[in-house]
Design a protein around this nucleic acid. Sequence first.
DNA 1: GACAAATGATACTATAATGGTATCATTATA
DNA 2: TATAATGATACCATTATAGTATCATTTGTC
Lengths: 140, 140
Amino acid sequence: MKLITRNTDYAMRALCHIAQQKKEAVTVTEMVAALGIPRPFLRKIVQTLSGEGILASCKGQGGGFSLRKRPGDVRLTDLIRVFQGTIQLNECIFKKKICPMRRSCALKREIDGIERDALTRLHKVSIASLIRKGGRHDAD
Amino acid sequence: MKLITRNTDYAMRALCHIAQQKKEAVTVTEMVAALGIPRPFLRKIVQTLSGEGILASCKGQGGGFSLRKRPGDVRLTDLIRVFQGTIQLNECIFKKKICPMRRSCALKREIDGIERDALTRLHKVSIASLIRKGGRHDAD
DNA sequence: GACAAATGATACTATAATGGTATCATTATA
DNA sequence: TATAATGATACCATTATAGTATCATTTGTC
Ligand code: FES
Ligand code: FES
């Protein structure tokens, strides 16, 4: 049972780091040094975040990445959606077809309820909330 | 984000089915007919449950499986433990080493809290509770 | 005892998700 | 124009999931 994957975790680390810098733009090189994430992987992640409109990017020397949204507006659920696909409540499947009795299924009702609650809580976690809570989330 | 896998789901279906039969022993053939789960897969699952002491088995003609525990004592968390490995709260890893700052990490604290809550709720779901709640969980 | 009906044990396979690497193109600045 | 940055994209390795397949063993019935 894993709520967030490495992608999501790294993304949140990078975002918190960027949010805490004073500079206009933060480079990948800088983040690699600060966060200890493998460079090409981190590059892929921030590129994705850029594509999603969460980060802004500047090419060329002196370039880098910066937050495009307010720290309170970037939530864990957003990152999960981006890196872990649509947030799907437990899908019961029967030979490629969705289970015919999922309306009446007691187990599904329970799981759905639990997932919904988890999601509302994940939704409350944002860059801002993490930083607030002593959220140093850097390596070394 | 998937709380339970197919294994676990099928296992719970099979267990609920067995619990609702009057007979001494329920055969795999019977369960396949009732639950629509692929036969060899279901066999593997009930064998595992048998090995775990959740089901008792009788070999030979007239044999089959029966519950070895009370329906209230078999919980979703038990099945998750069996089929999805140790229930591990979010593990943050840095190049094979566990993250040096996991004590102070705000993100980890949040995730851990959410997972713990989910687990306590999953722990409350048992064969008995599912059956009680109109728990027909069979396929045609 | 032979046969059939059941489980036990175990090995194998296919697919997808995760966690990355690697490469070349493009842009901006000094 | 050299250099430091991102953009785009393709590729790869490992693991987890979801199964399949096979042969052995036990047990009741005729
Ligand atoms: S049996 Fe399909 S949703 Fe529960
Ligand atoms: S950075 Fe490792 S636990 Fe948060």
